[in-house]
Simulated assay, not measured.
Amino acid sequence: MGDSPLKLGILASGSGSNFEAIAEAIENQQLNAQIQVVIYNNPDAKVVLRAQKFGVPAVLLNHRNYSREELDAEIVKTFRESNVDWVIMAGWMRIVTPVLLDAFPEKVINIHPSLLPSFPGIRAIEQALKAGVKITGCTVHIAHLEVDSGPILMQAAVPILAGDTAETLHARIQVQEHKIVVGAIALLAARSAK
């Protein structure tokens, strides 16, 4: 494989801050990768504006128009047409099926806002606050069929402060997400260069 960049397909549902962290790391030559396409499932997702800023094609696949399997089949089709090697779920708020995971075996990466295996699933930040833990964080892992499972690539710890709300804690976790998603992709790029 040599030094050819990893060809990334990004799945995003929201603001696209993780997408932007990846795009900036590529632009600053901290990451040997290129983003081929962004797929978003929410018509109001702000990731579109960030994709435009970086000149990355963005494709809307509204999940309301598909079954889970149909959506993943459309994702696979779009990613194959765009020559994607690695799939990064960067704030992708949909559960993926074997249709996607089998098309990109061990090459689908997820970002989750907790120190897995603690607090998998939705509302991980609220789960951590409710449990009264003193430390939470975020995880980048290879996605497997069971939600928020699969080999962990990188984690970052974030302390829970007195008076934290879901919003304040989320903001601090996001800062770390941006670092470890870039770090994890760099790790994959280094492995594939060998």
Rank of each mutant, 00 (worst) to 15 (best):
L8Y: 01
G9S: 00
G14Q: 05
S17R: 03
N18I: 04
E20Q: 07
E20M: 02
E24P: 00
E27R: 15
N28Y: 07
Q29C: 10
Q30C: 10
L31W: 04
L31Q: 11
L31H: 14
N32I: 05
A33Q: 03
N41E: 04
N42T: 04
P43L: 04
K46W: 07
A51W: 09
A51N: 08
A51Q: 05
Q52M: 11
V59R: 05
L61V: 14
R68S: 09
L71A: 09
D72W: 03
A73D: 11
V87P: 00
M89W: 04
G91H: 06
M93A: 00
I95T: 04
P98K: 11
V99N: 10
L101I: 09
L101G: 10
A103G: 03
N110W: 01
N110F: 03
P113N: 12
P120M: 08
G121A: 11
G121S: 09
I122W: 13
R123S: 05
A124H: 08
Q127V: 13
Q127M: 10
L129V: 05
G137L: 13
C138P: 02
H144D: 06
L145F: 08
E146Q: 14
E146T: 11
L153M: 13
L153N: 12
M154W: 10
M154G: 03
Q155Y: 07
I160D: 04
I160V: 15
D164N: 12
D164M: 07
T165G: 10
E167C: 02
H170D: 08
A171R: 11
Q174E: 15
V175T: 14
A186Y: 08
L187Q: 15
R191H: 13
K194L: 14
